[in-house]
């Protein structure tokens, strides 16, 4: 390849890369910086009504249910202040658990239920072996029981 052609190609490559960077930055500012809205933000009307968006929070314990058609799942996403019911047809990720974080992408329906097209599990930054996690869990439970016992005694 002629040196001049090579130079041109590389300048084009550089410009393409710069263009891609700018596109990514602009795209991020357009809406993706907020990866998901919390149920409170949805309740306050901050989330778009006509577009798809994502809602994130903790899956409420005991809220995961399979509907009568055998395919549709519903669960509740909470941020401890407000709740949002999510309806979803599809496979849930391995790490999806009640009491753990999740992010659902979809649209809010007229009935106030969030119709999700994708559900992702969000995990926290803790890394502990199962025995340690179990021990911590049991210690917390014991503390709670002791605290209740104390108040009862009084």
């Amino acid at each position: 390849m002629k040196p001049r052609h090579r130079r041109l190609l590389l300048i084009l490559a550089g410009l393409a890369v710069l263009g891609a960077i700018l596109a990514l930055i602009l795209n991020a500012f357009h809406g993706n910086l907020v990866f998901f809205f919390s149920p409170s933000e949805v309740a306050a009307g901050h989330a778009p009504k006509e577009r798809t968006f994502r809602v994130g929070g903790v899956v409420k314990e005991g809220s995961l249910r399979r509907e009568a058609d055998g395919v549709t799942l519903t669960f509740v996403v909470t941020d401890t202040e407000k709740e949002l019911v999510v309806r979803y047809q599809g496979i849930l990720p391995d790490l999806f658990r009640e009491g753990k974080g999740a992010v659902a992408q979809g649209r809010i329906g007229g009935d106030g239920v969030f119709a999700a097209t994708q559900v992702l599990a969000k995990h926290d930054e803790n890394y502990t072996p199962p025995e340690v996690a179990q021990a911590v869990d049991e210690a917390q439970k014991r503390k709670a029981i002791e605290a209740t016992a104390k108040t009862l005694k009084q």
Binding site: P93, L95, A121
Partner: peptide, 9 residues
């Protein structure tokens, strides 16, 4: 395997 997606923006 963890989130359920290869990539998110």
């Amino acid at each position: 395997p963890m989130w359920g997606a290869w990539w998110v923006w």
